[in-house]
């Protein structure tokens, strides 16, 4: 309860997450170096560019520390953050452009699964299995990835057009959309409840 929320601040829209947690009265702490994980209660991997994020994670030596941290701390990944959490990437083109995910969530992800920026969209998704609420959540998909396979231990929290868009295993939560770009704080709140239970 006393440690702040960790935010991976290597690149991306981490300020939007910071704002969301601030609106819920919670302090955040930026993580850019391995030792900084000791100061936080959980980790949020924001949206951004997954090519950039995976390269920076390796350059700053955060890959193994984050993997270890995730064993006993909650982690939330949104969009590029979900790509980071996945254990496999699907891509028609070879080599996945050097994107090496952390391999924490047993699922396969297709980057830019809906197309380019002009194909970005907002759609309502149900959150009942996350917090029991009945009101649909306005999910913002920006050059979003698609989850094409989930392993047996992975629970599907929300779907859009019959495909998973939010998945969970234990205290790892991955979303293909951006709750931080809306004023609806239900997902951040649900994540905080997970953090406070640990």
């Amino acid at each position: 309860m006393c440690k702040p929320i960790g935010l991976l601040t290597l690149q991306g829209d981490y300020q939007k997450h910071q704002q969301a947690f601030a609106d819920l009265g919670r302090e955040t702490f930026g993580v850019r170096r391995p030792g900084e994980l000791e100061s936080v209660s959980c980790l949020v991997i924001p949206g951004g560019e997954s090519t950039t994020l995976t390269r920076l994670v390796d350059r700053v030596g955060l890959r193994e520390p984050v993997r270890e941290f995730a064993c006993d701390h909650p982690v939330l990944g949104t969009c590029a953050g979900l790509i980071m959490l996945a254990n496999r990437l699907e891509d028609e083109r070879k080599g996945h452009f050097g994107v090496e995910p952390l391999g924490l969530l047993d699922c396969t992800v297709l980057r830019n699964g809906y197309g380019r920026q002009i194909d970005s969209f907002t759609a309502p998704v149900g959150l009942e299995s996350l917090d029991g609420s009945h009101e649909p959540f306005p999910a913002v998909f920006i050059r979003a990835p698609r989850i094409t396979r989930t392993g047996p231990e992975v629970e599907i929290i929300a779907e859009y057009e019959g495909e998973p868009v939010a998945v969970r295993r234990g205290t790892l939560l991955g979303l293909t959309f951006h709750p931080e770009l809306t004023n609806d704080l239900r997902i951040h709140k649900a994540f905080l409840e997970m953090v406070d239970r640990v």
């Binding site: 601040t9 991306g12 939007k16 949206g47 950039t52 590029a80 970005s120 050059r143 951006h178 770009l181």
Partner: peptide, 10 residues
């Protein structure tokens, strides 16, 4: 603006 947000810190 959402895409612009994703490009921050880069």
């Amino acid at each position: 603006v959402g895409l612009a947000e994703m490009l921050k810190g880069g």
